[in-house]
Design a protein around this nucleic acid. Structure first.
Lengths: 211, 211, 211, 211
DNA sequence: GATGAATGAGGGTTCATTCAT
DNA sequence: AATGAATGAACCCTCATTCAT
């Protein structure tokens, strides 16, 4: 199961961890292999024994970071009221958008999307697309069960996720806000659920709060 | 009328234009003053006669690019059916999101938001915030006129803009799509208007299309 | 008397004055023509209308500075007791060595003596050599008058001047002392006069102070 | 015996040697790291593996040069006639002043004393001050032994050293003389010893030579 | 397999000098 | 005669990469 004739995986992880720290702090161009070597506590030469170039190390870091983000969505959605499940999914999505880790990853992937289109694709696939597929599946089931009006479940999921980014999505990416209160998150997610169910629920529309 | 005692503005523009090309292509760190000088067709020394440093030139480029984006939203919204106006606004917002100029600006501002928080702020203010204020005002009027349910108009505007980014917002920022068909835009904007009016319109909800 | 077909001398002086400020502060290499132009309140182009190069402007500055230093020695030596005259000459020499103007000139000429041997020569001739010739003449007269023992008057003058630099000569040039008290100057000059007269006076030797 | 975990000292010396050549020839500002690298036969990058900056390399060069000068004064002064010992010390001092190595060091330290006061201090301490302390001690002993009149031994030493610079001290620093004949050195040192002993010796004054 | 000294191209920036106005 | 915008070489320094140990 191990890779006996390869570089030990532990040192590889160690290097990627150092790379994560530095890339995260300085971006791709701003990071130097010397600093990464320092933070990974290996020599500069060793870096090149494990990765043929800076760009390859960067790719490895991004891929690993993407992989570690996806888990967030694993355990979702039991049998309960629709609004409650949607709320939980929305809260989770909001948490993901607001989390420093995903934020920094998003920002660095966007920065280098021109130079590393492959990484942008990986980010998309392991992140948003996976979440989308998951929710789309679930919505499809609910539609078939008659609890949601029949419609394109993928588009519905996309709209819901778009709504979950109301207010803080862009500001967060621009680093214009550092913290977001739970009240505000509740407001945004609640609003997303309301708009979503008012259009997609099989039942009667939900009333708006008076401002 | 001319500016006899100043650096000629035309050359300043020429330099900023060269900077735009290179910054746009390589990002801030990846761009070199040599390349900018080459693209601007001036000597490297001349760059420093107009801008004291690379960062200042970058700031000038971003500010100018922000200023040239804002006009998009100026003339909007007459007296007509709500859905029509919303559709026009949504189309305009979608066009903005999809335009290469705003896209490239967004990407570079996000990249350097850590190093140049001031520029992120400028981008936010001249772009999203202005559009938001504008639409919020209009929605407030419609609410007072009884054509929309009374609610927080700013939040409603934020939700509408979030909905307008459905499907292609993030993919575009990751450079995963280069062109978007008008049909798809119509689908997204139409979907945004539908969800919006279903919740906010004073009248009865609009039906969903069958997928 | 003026130079009607030449550059006006006043602007020339103005430029040299600016050069003096900057060269004095930054040294030859450290000074930039831009700064000199700024300090002289003329354009950079004008600098080159009056001086063909930075080095020529530097030469002009050094020559002018040398010329303005020499005057220090003009009015010396009346008819009075030998020790009194020597003391006055010594005091003047000490003042010259300690004066900021001559110090800065010496330091800059020493710095650039390799590159501008001509300037070192000018400094020597207008400064030390002139003082030397002057004192040597006077000593020669005193020897002929029988008030000093017959000897090489130039060498005697050189020794006296060397003695006047006791203690603070080198430290001052190394910028290790910024101020010197009058007591210390008196001590050094007094010591110089004593040693000088003990050897050169026709009369009996002067006693040393007990430490 | 070797230094396995350090930069090899030999290459360090090699670099300092190259720096010595270039700094000596061009001064601090005039020297370029490229030229130093060329003269040291290493790449420019290597310079920065050993010294973090140009100024640090300069400091290392000056300190090393100071250290190598100090030895001149080590073995002095046995039991013999005063005039003979003084003559030997004077000759040594003259040799030091006239030596190209100390000359070039003095000139560069004076040049940069404003920018590197620490180096001026080091130069002073390892050079003149050490010599002074040494001679002052010896003079103090001779005074106590009754062979010199009691007086301030430090001041006496300072006067003697000042006298030893008669005639060629300043001219040499200005690079106005490149070689000095032994006759002239003998004349200057002999004159210094004579003036010194005429004032400080316990015995009768020594006669002056007729010019 | 791990090291880190060595490299040299390229980074941002300064500056003496020129020349059209 | 005076200007100052333009130049481009040279500045100090960084860094991805290599290779002898």
């Amino acid at each position: 199961m191990a890779e006996p004739d390869e570089h030990p995986a532990s040192k590889r992880r160690q290097i990627i961890h150092g790379a994560e720290i530095v890339f995260t702090e300085c971006g791709y161009e701003g990071a130097s292999m010397s600093r990464i070597a320092l933070r990974a506590a290996v020599s500069k030469g060793t870096l090149y024994n494990y990765f043929t170039s800076k760009s390859e190390l960067f790719a490895a870091f991004v891929e690993q970071a993407c992989a570690s983000l996806i888990q967030v969505f694993e355990p979702v959605c039991e049998q309960e009221e629709l609004a409650v499940t949607l709320n939980r999914i929305g809260q989770r999505m909001a948490a993901l958008i607001l989390s420093p880790d995903s934020l920094v990853l998003f920002r660095i992937v966007v920065s280098e999307a021109g130079k590393f289109p492959h990484l942008a694709q990986i980010f998309w696939q392991t992140g948003p697309q996976t979440a989308l597929a998951y929710m789309s599946d679930w919505l499809g089931q609910e539609m078939q069960a008659g609890r949601l009006q029949p419609s394109d479940p993928t588009f519905a999921a996309e709209q819901f996720f778009a709504l979950c980014q109301t207010r803080f999505g862009m500001k967060r990416r621009l680093l214009l806000v550092t913290e977001t209160s739970q009240e505000e998150i509740d407001l945004v997610v609640g609003g997303a659920v309301r708009l979503f169910l008012n259009s997609y629920a099989a039942a009667a529309p939900v009333g708006l709060p008076r401002s």
